[in-house]
């Protein structure tokens, strides 16, 4: 049996609207304390939010790089306005850092340049991964809904690409032109008053029977549960996954990163790792159903794989 190289940790972009100083300080602490190798920064959900983080991007990139992290800049997930197209064009053309493509326009504009592909691009098979690689994609974060059986096939079918798995965080499930978050407070997108900033971890959507189900994050809908692929790490490593993505929640992400780091290195048993995640993110319900080709909200204990 060949020993696979251990995957490294990456930190995905903050999906929620955090105010500028909170966003900056989060990354400063990540730079100083978190054992992550790659950090993707930037607003992906809503172009109206960009001005909150823009003043701090330079200092955050510098601090992360000084700490030895590789930094990429994420593009917007939904691009419909001319202004948004111009933002993506400028990013693809001028960025001194690698760009993570999160919509088809970025994919098109980045052709011929090394870039990465984010989890909101539909890569469901090896043929698609190979096509993107031939155009310059060096790493691909696979869609969170993919079961392990597909992950294994894709990695086998597209050698030379570094594949990444969405292993921690509320799962981005949908994006809309309409802002359900603004709507929930009697507003509309064009006059939203940035009320999504009131909910830095998302605004919970419950069923009428008071069962927590989803969470609103501006125009994006995320899962109520926090995906946690941690007992699955050995299996993912054995399949040839290069990177494990942690998606920031409003919790102790340094502790989350340390927990994953210890679990990858075999320094902590799965049960301990799960207990540590629950301490780092109190009150979160964990899920891993997508990995097992079941409903994404499910939590499957143990090691059996689909």
């Amino acid at each position: 049996m060949t020993v696979a190289t251990l995957p490294s940790l990456s930190l995905g972009p903050v999906l929620y609207l955090w105010d500028g100083p909170k966003w900056r300080d989060f990354y400063f602490r990540i730079a100083d304390e978190a054992p992550v190798a790659h950090v993707v920064i930037g607003e992906t959900v809503c172009s109206k939010r960009l001005h909150f983080i823009e003043p701090h991007v330079g200092e955050v990139v510098e601090r992360l790089e000084r700490a030895g992290k590789s930094v990429s800049l994420a593009s917007l997930a939904l691009v419909t306005l001319e202004r948004e197209s111009q933002i993506v064009r400028a990013l693809a053309r001028d960025s001194a850092h690698p760009v993570e493509a999160n919509d088809l326009s970025a994919l098109g504009l980045l052709a011929g340049k090394p870039h990465s592909v984010g989890p909101l691009i539909n890569v469901y098979n090896g043929a698609t991964a190979r096509l993107l690689a031939s155009r310059g994609a060096t790493s691909i974060c696979l869609p969170p809904e993919l079961p392990m059986a597909s992950v294994r096939e894709i990695v086998r079918d597209a050698p030379g690409v570094a594949f990444e798995i969405f292993a921690f965080g509320r799962v981005p499930l949908a994006i809309s032109a309409r802002c359900a978050h603004a709507r929930s407070k009697g507003l509309v997108k064009d006059n939203c008053q940035f009320i999504c900033g009131d909910d830095p971890d998302g605004l919970v959507v419950e069923t009428l029977d008071r069962q927590p189900f989803l969470a609103l994050n501006g125009v994006q809908t995320v899962s109520h549960t926090c995906q946690a692929l941690i007992q699955e790490l050995p299996e993912l490593a054995a399949a040839g996954i290069s990177r494990i993505r942690l998606s920031p929640q409003d919790c102790d992400m340094v502790s989350v990163a340390r927990t994953f780091d210890d679990a990858i290195a075999g320094r902590s048993a799965p049960a301990d790792a799960i207990a540590r995640l629950q301490t780092a993110y109190p009150g979160a319900s964990l899920s891993n159903g997508f990995h097992y080709a079941q409903q994404g909200a499910a939590w499957i204990a143990g090691h059996a794989s689909a």
Binding site: A77, L78, L120, N122, Y124, P143, P144, E145, V171, L173, A174, I175, S176, A177, R178, F213, L214, T221, S223, G289, F290, A293, Q294, Q295, G296, A297, A298
Partner: peptide, 21 residues
């Protein structure tokens, strides 16, 4: 569709069956 088509896993999250797959 209320959500951007081809980019929605809500059904899959609740049932395991998705539009895309």
């Amino acid at each position: 569709c209320v959500m951007a088509e081809g980019r929605c896993s809500l059904s899959s999250y609740a049932t395991g069956k998705s539009p895309n797959m």
